[in-house]
């Protein structure tokens, strides 16, 4: 092959490269992009995972149970509870409900935490929306 022949083929290659037809963008692309962008800016959907629901239910039941105990317990049972609490938590004899209050407060905080977790925005939708 002589040099002029090689140049000729290279010129043909260059010409083909410069005249490569552009693939036209699909008509639906614009609407797909708009959908994708809208999905990003839309407020996230309400999410209530079953595990958090179960934990919240358990804590709420416990809290209600403790409240009901403290309010509606007969005097004899209350004395027994005082003794039990004194035994377990070594609190002063005249303040047996202190420990129960601490536990109750802890559960209340936990309930609030899960309530906030549930009510706050959940997971984002995927960035790209498929057809």
């Amino acid at each position: 092959m002589n040099p002029s022949e090689a140049d000729r083929w290279m010129t043909a290659v260059e010409d083909a490269l410069r005249t490569m037809p552009e693939a036209p963008a699909p008509a639906a692309l614009r609407s797909r992009v708009m959908r994708g962008v809208r999905a990003l800016s839309a407020p996230p959907k309400f999410v209530f995972p079953w595990l958090e629901a179960a934990i919240s239910l358990m804590l709420s039941t416990l809290l209600t149970g403790v409240g009901a105990l403290l309010v509606g317990l007969p005097p004899t049972e209350l004395v027994r509870l005082q003794q039990t609490l004194r035994y377990f938590f070594l609190v002063p004899a005249n303040r047996p409900f202190l420990a129960a209050s601490v536990i109750g407060l802890g559960m209340l905080v936990a309930c609030l935490f899960f309530a906030v977790r549930i009510l706050l925005p959940g997971r984002r939708a995927p960035a790209v929306v498929r057809r």
Binding site: A23, A25, P26, A28, L29, R32, V33, G36, V37, L40, A127, V128, V129, R130
Partner: peptide, 18 residues
């Protein structure tokens, strides 16, 4: 591939917007 190119183009615009 046209379908993959369309997906990629859409993702590119969404990323650019972000």
């Amino acid at each position: 591939n046209e379908q993959e190119a369309e997906d990629t183009a859409q993702e590119a615009f969404v990323r650019a917007w972000q």
